[in-house]
């Protein structure tokens, strides 16, 4: 992780649909933010799916898998799924996406990137 990471305002809480995602622009970067409202959790990852380099993860369906209910997102292109916690690909490929810490305060969403 880069050492110059700092908390930055990403968007308003209502910009991200419940149990869905949205994309924010930070300079050249695109970051996908997920509002996992079923469990009152927020996650952020890079928006790029490493499979075909498509900027699409924020448009994917969220969900969870396994006994531990690992939160995940499925890329809308070919349904590769990624853990929202570790960024690891859960559908058998050795891809990994970057994840970022998220915090919510006074109706605003901040991410550390």
């Amino acid at each position: 992780m880069e050492s110059n990471a700092k908390w930055r305002l990403a968007c308003q809480v209502e910009d991200v649909p419940s149990d869905g995602g949205a994309c924010v622009s930070f300079g050249d970067e695109q970051i996908a933010i997920f509002n996992f409202s079923r469990r009152n959790q927020w996650y952020a990852t890079e928006n790029r799916c490493p499979h075909k380099q498509q900027m699409a993860l924020s448009r994917g369906m969220t969900g969870s898998t396994g006994e531990q209910c690992e939160p995940k997102v499925a890329c809308p292109f070919h349904k590769k799924t990624f853990s929202l916690v570790t960024g690891e690909c859960l559908s058998g490929d050795e891809y990994k996406i970057r994840t970022y810490p998220v915090k919510v305060k006074d109706g605003k969403v901040y991410i550390c990137a």
Partner: peptide
Amino acid sequence: YDEVLGRWGKGDGCEVCKP
């Protein structure tokens, strides 16, 4: 969907059961 999952499902759903 939330009510379906709450009544008959478990976990948080996924890209198979949601659609």
